[in-house]
Design a protein around this nucleic acid. Structure first.
Lengths: 196, 196
DNA sequence: AAGCTAACGCAACGATCTGTGCGTTCGTGC
DNA sequence: GCACGAACGCACAGATCGTTGCGTTAGCTT
């Protein structure tokens, strides 16, 4: 059990201009992303500035200004890289099992203070784009699990209702209340969603 | 019907030092809060700065630096003032009616782009404090409605489950997806929560 | 292996922000 | 009404940020 199926796989750099995604650029990108996460974890909170990130990453600020332009775009890029990497959805054989495992995983992920800090900062600076970056592929993963159950012939909820019943509470607790939900609580959400 | 009962009533200034909440200070406070909302509505997004707010409010930046210190605290204060003013909860006679009306009201409120901008900015800059400010008294209102139904002797869900089933989807949709929920959709959330 | 060019490092400038000291105004209590 | 003090306006200085132009490094191509 606990086999897995990849869902998306878009992990390429944001620059659609597509010129030179090679070694150094990728290194810089990774260093910058890590610097962003580190600084956010250190409770700089308010003043996450380009120069600060550049200094931490060991890169010159000019590079950041040229590649990302603003803190908002930088955060949105970092969030995209963090939240929508190649993800696997669990495959336990039943929709309930899949959702329970998946919800528990999401809850565990959201319980990380660093993840929370990144999400909050991205929401604040990135506007609409940042918000979508924080969702990542989560709704796609939900849709994938539900589609698989549908192929099995089981009873399925709509993706919309599943998102309301699972992603809603999970994200609301993580972002707005101090205490993120536990994996057990997340599994309870699945029981509240599915009949029986 | 549609009578109302006040819930909290804490609308005093943030300064617990309690010295002079009189006329001018209050005027400045209101002007600054309005300036914050206006600037956020105008898609400044990234660079909401103290000087910009001061200029818009017709106050000197020094005042803002002294009273609030940072953009984060300023936003948290503005959010508190906006989201946890004296609020009334509906009283339709049944829990289902109360919740439906309340959920629709919340959905309508969250559909305002200006409110969204304020919430996102506050989340980003305010950290934990800002997040709680965005929740406002919503959970208290929920608890009040449920307590009233309990006094009537009706069947009640826990406040926790109600928050998960209502506030979760409402806030998740507003913040993370581009399309906030409609009042009708919000009423549907209540139907999913309550048996029958 | 050699050339081409995108991406980066560097330095300097202007603009903007952050913080301070002092005088003035206005709310509050006697 | 009068005095007291908190909050505000003002001007100034230090620090930081955002941007530009140019030279250099290092992927990518053939």
């Amino acid at each position: 059990m606990a086999a897995s199926t990849p869902v998306k796989g878009t992990h390429t750099p944001s620059a659609g201009t597509g010129s030179r995604p090679g070694g150094r650029s990728a290194r810089v990108r990774a260093a910058v992303h890590r610097a962003v996460e580190e600084l956010l974890a250190e409770e700089v909170g308010d003043g996450l500035t380009i120069p600060a990130v550049a200094a931490r990453a060991g890169v010159h600020a000019t590079t950041l200004y040229r590649r990302w332009g603003s803190v908002g775009e930088l955060l949105a890029d970092a969030a995209t890289s963090r939240f929508s990497g190649d993800v696997v959805v669990p495959d336990t054989g039943s929709l309930r099992g899949d959702l329970q495992r998946w919800a528990a995983d999401v809850a565990t992920d959201l319980a990380d203070p660093d993840v929370l800090a990144l999400m909050r900062a991205t929401l604040g600076a990135g506007g609409e784009q940042g918000a979508c970056a924080c969702r990542g592929d989560r709704e796609d993963q939900l849709a994938a699990m539900i589609a698989r159950e549908e192929a099995r012939g089981g009873a399925i909820p709509t993706v919309e209702r599943a998102a309301d019943a699972l992603l809603g509470p999970l994200y609301y607790r993580a972002i707005f209340t101090g205490e993120p939900g536990s994996p057990d609580w997340a599994r309870g959400l699945v029981d509240a969603l599915l009949p029986g």
